[in-house]
Design a protein around this nucleic acid. Structure first.
Length: 230
DNA sequence: GACCAGGCACATC
DNA sequence: GATGTGCATGGT
């Protein structure tokens, strides 16, 4: 068993399912993925409500708004001028490449779709992968600042390693399962917020307190077999 | 008032 | 290729 499986089970047992992005439409998830760049989710929710309450949360209606009008609406999400442009870029792409349909996007091969998303201005690796995983149900692992921080604090991979290197570790160590990737990424965010804070980490009560360090360096380390997570 | 948050593009060396 | 900077709101 790889230690990443062990860590997942520890986190899942401690926090339970996180239920990220349930019930939203794929389009809403994609918009949320752009709005949440370097931003607290509660601010994103407030921006999304501004759109929802005016019945503007659809590809065609949002595409019809000017960038400045859009910026006003998404103001609570921060970086509103930048994000308004990024949303417009994404909408242009969605309409041009897929006729404005996330369902059409989902029909395309995962890696080909990822390449195209990465060419859209304002969509980097994390946003692209968040759209693929959480909106389109594709088995790709999302790496974020929390994932890097938690793994580096436990000496599993250095924080300075690239996005692709972190992602490759997950893809090599875990089965390519959408639900697993969905929960696991959300659990990293949860443990990062709760215990593995930037400035004052609370390690004593963290479910991962025994992971890494000397145990990591000791090649004889064996992780106990755990029952599968439902 | 400082610090942080589910990044990214762009300039510069 | 690496390193630095601008972008901005709202909660703690």
């Amino acid at each position: 068993m790889h230690e990443l499986v062990f860590i997942y089970e520890k986190l899942y047992r401690f926090f339970g399912p996180q239920n990220w992005w349930p019930g939203d439409t794929p389009f809403e998830v994609a918009v949320g993925a752009i709005l949440t760049q370097n931003t607290n989710w509660s601010n994103v929710e407030s921006a999304m409500l501004n759109l929802k309450n005016r019945n503007l949360l659809s590809p065609s209606t949002m595409h019809g708004l000017s960038a400045s009008k859009l910026a006003t609406l998404i103001k609570p999400a921060g970086y509103f001028n930048v994000k308004a442009r990024r949303l417009k870029s994404f909408l242009e792409f969605l309409i041009e490449a897929y006729g404005g349909s996330m369902e059409n996007m989902a029909r395309e091969g995962m890696l080909q779709c990822r390449e195209k998303l990465l060419r859209v201005n304002g969509i980097g690796p994390e946003t692209a992968d968040s759209i693929l995983l959480y909106a389109l149900q594709k088995p790709i692992f999302v790496i974020d600042a929390y994932t890097k921080r938690v793994l580096s604090r436990h000496e599993i991979m250095e924080q300075e390693k690239s996005y692709a290197e972190f992602q490759a570790l997950f893809h090599a160590s875990l089965p390519g399962d959408v639900n697993l990737f969905n929960e696991y990424h959300a659990l990293f965010v949860r443990v990062g917020k709760t215990f593995c804070k930037k400035k004052n980490p609370i390690c004593g009560s963290c479910p991962l307190r025994e992971i890494g360090g000397q145990a990591k360096r000791d090649e004889t380390t064996r992780y106990p077999e755990l029952t599968p997570v439902p």
